[in-house]
Every structure is written in C-alpha cells, then in structure tokens.
Write a protein that binds this DNA or RNA. Structure first.
Lengths: 228, 228
DNA sequence: ACAAAAGTGTTGTGCGTACACCCATGC
DNA sequence: GCATGGGTGTACGCACAACACTTTTGT
C-alpha cells in the first residue's frame, strides 16, 4: 500500500456536453464561466470530482446542478489529459455528454446558472480544449444515432415523424428523404402512433407518435442499423 | 486560482490492454502483479500518471516499459472511476488498448516483466475491474476492425491473405468465407502483392502481401465498411 | 382557390452472402 | 498419387437510394 502513497495526485474534473433539440435545431448548453481563469468566457459546464464519489456520480451531480434534472441520458465520452489544457493548473478532465429534452420547466434554473442554449451551427469560441470536446461529442452522437435510438432522448414524449426527421437531419447535417425515413423508422416497430395530431406546424397536421418502451430498450441493448 | 486548491486530488493510473496475434490466435499480454494488494494475481499492466506527463504519455511510457517498443498503436478506451474499484485506495484508471506485432525481439523484456501472452479465449480471473476493461477493449476492436484497418497493426510486415483472415476470425469470433474475404480486401487496393510465397503452412504456399502505406493512411482517416 | 406541410409506392442497383471445384506442391 | 491448404467465379436476394403526386385544412 505504501507504494501508492508515493505517487502524484491530480485534480480530476468532469465536463459535460449537454445537447438539446427544439424547432430551431440542435442546441448545446453553454455557460458564461464564473471564475478565473477566463472569467466570462463561454465554457462547458464542469466541476471537480470528489474523493467520495465515482466519476459517473460526479457527472450526474454536475448535470443535476446545471439543469435540475435527475434523469438524463449521460455517457462518458473521453478523458482529456494534456498537461497544459487548463492554464490554471494541471487538471485531468473526463468529458461526458448528455441528451436532454428541452422544456420550459427548468429554464429558470438554467438562467440562474448563466447557462444558454446555443445552436451547434453557431458555437462561440470556448475555453481550454472545450471545442475539441464538443467536436468529439458531435462525432460520437453522429455515429451513435445510426445504431442506437438516442434521438428519442432529445424529443418530448409525443412527437411527430417530421420532427424526428428534423432531429436526424440536424445531427447528421444533411437532408434525408422523407419517404425512406418514414418507412425505415416505422418498420422498426419502435413507435406507437397516437390518435392525435400536432397542428402547430401545418394545416393538415401530423400525427403524434411516442416510442414503445420495450422496443426502445431492446434497441438500446442490441442496436440497429440506420443507414439513412 | 485559489478555488482549485480547495478541491480533492486523486491518484490517476493508466492500465493497458495489449493485444497481439500469432498462429495460435489473438493474445493478451498479462502480468503477474508484483505488489500488494493481490500480489501474484493476473493483472493488466498499469502505472500511475505523473504530474509532469500527459495521460497519453503515461500510456506510452507504460507500454514502452512493458514491451520495449517505442511505436505501438495505442488508443484511449475508457476511464474507470468507481470509488472502490481498487481495494488498495481510490484510484481512477484510464484504460488504453494497444495493438502490437508479436516477434521474438522483445520476448526477453516481457519475461523480465513477468508478462505472458494469454489467449483471449482463455483469460484467467483478473484483479479489480480488469476483466471489464478487457471486455470493453474486445468490443472496441470488434467494432473498430470493421471500419479501420487496425488488423494490420497486429501482423508482421509481410503476411498472407489466409493469415489476415485468421486474424479477423479471431477478433470477430466467427468463421468467414474465404472467397468473399479475399475479394473484399483486395478490391480495397489496400494491399500490395509480393513476388514471394510463405510455404510454412502449406505445400502450395501463399503469396505474401504488405499494406500500401498511403492507402493504409487514407483508410485510417476515412474509414471503410467491412461487413464480412 | 391556394398555400403549406403531411403522407404515400415503386423501381433499379449495388453489395453482401452462399456455395464447389481446381491448383500447386511436399511427402 | 494423395493429402493439404491456396486460390478462383457466379447467382440470388435484400436493403438502400432515387423519385412525384395526392391529401388535408386554414386562410
């Protein structure tokens, strides 16, 4: 055991790339940093890992404090460990990405944290290596959305097929054929059609769907191939 | 800056999952641990990250000390951060996997380190969460070998198509059709055929190939789809 | 009546998959 | 001459990709 005590110890942080989606496209939750170095610069939400918590728990704690949400899709992304990545000190950062459903209920918490939804197409300069973290996260979800139903973490409970297609187009950054998209997604039997229409975006109205929890879970475990 | 100083610090380790391949199949480099806790139990090679080095550099240093090899394919896998993963203390471990070409030149170094090549089909119980690390790494290279030419990191400079196929079969753990395999791999133009045969495993002999460095690099960057 | 978005089928093509026989050589 | 592994070609089916018109309804 004494061998352990001779070793260097490090500050370990968690940084969270939080994605959301609404009618304006794919969004990222960014904050104005409240401390030096780089006070008032745009930054990802982060925090230090405590002795008494696992890294996963630290990531949960940090997203909870930022959004007030207990249950979010959260996944470890990559660990950034260059010596000088933070000019304020040698800090190892484990990046996580989160997918959350944007709604009004927690906008107040976000504002209190100085957090804002920023379009992924218009990301301002970020501190440290946070831009690299965002790029890594975007690449990850682009791959992931082809094999796992992560898209649905970002939509409200009830959503329409055109909405879902817009989400995929925003993630993949290219247009999809709506016939092929609808066919592919429906024949997975992942969605349950509701007897209700969303008329907010057209006169005809689009039927609402919601995902089937069992099928959803199956696909989360087994994956699928979504070559749209 | 003073805010940083109030934070907890952690031991951070790197553990390396080192893969090799020879005529007996896919192998893993394991060591008999030389210190407590779990002295003499099977373990991955690991070490602590120093204040003065990046995590990547720590991984390089550790694989170098284990194998004596300067240039190995090394990639970060995942960071394991449960509080009690190591009963000897709270240690965060960043796992890396390495792919190396087995040859005689460094067997002596391996022996000095108490390291042994163990078939992935016959892995003994490992300390801590090292079995989970190995599983994660195996899943990673199974996915990876379908989109990136990582297989070639594991073969000697000159190799035959049947050898390459055996490697893929070992990684994917199922047999492949040799006609389809050969067709697919050759029409990538990734391999250069040599005017020389390997007669060690058959009377007819199999032509040697080596990979084309430019094509290899292209595929490393752009990926391919290897749906064998 | 017209604008605007939702919804619907078919066809071609390329790719993966399955499959059986000849070749070269050492013994 | 025979045993052993190396090497070769084809036919089928499926899934992706491309494509245009009708429906609904609010204004």
């Amino acid at each position: 055991m004494s061998f352990y005590r001779e070793q260097d110890k490090h500050y370990v942080a968690v940084d969270c790339i939080v994605f959301g989606f609404n009618e304006d496209g794919l969004k990222l939750l960014l904050i104005k940093r409240q401390m030096d170095p780089f006070k008032n610069h745009w930054s990802l939400m982060g925090g230090f890992v405590k002795e008494s918590e696992s890294i996963d728990d630290a990531a949960k704690r940090i997203t909870l404090s930022l959004t007030g949400l207990e249950q979010v899709y959260l996944e470890q992304l990559y660990t950034f460990g260059d010596i000088n990545r933070d000019p304020g000190g040698r800090i190892i950062s484990v990046a996580y990405y989160a997918l959350i459903k944007i709604n009004d209920s927690f906008q107040e918490i976000l504002e209190n944290n100085g957090a804002h939804w920023i379009s992924v197409n218009n990301i301002p300069p970020l501190i440290f290596d946070h831009e690299q973290m965002v790029d890594t996260a975007l690449n990850k979800i682009r791959k992931r959305c082809r094999t796992q139903p992560i898209g649905f973490e970002l939509l409200p409970e009830k959503f329409t097929i055109p909405q879902l297609q817009l989400l995929y187009e925003a993630i993949l950054m290219h247009p999809l054929d709506k016939r092929n998209f609808r066919k592919k997604i429906l024949e997975m039997n992942l969605l349950d059609k509701l007897n209700e229409k969303d008329r907010s975006s057209s006169k005809k109205g689009a039927f609402y769907y919601r995902f089937n929890p069992e099928k959803y879970k199956d696909f989360t475990l087994q994956g699928f191939s979504f070559e749209v």
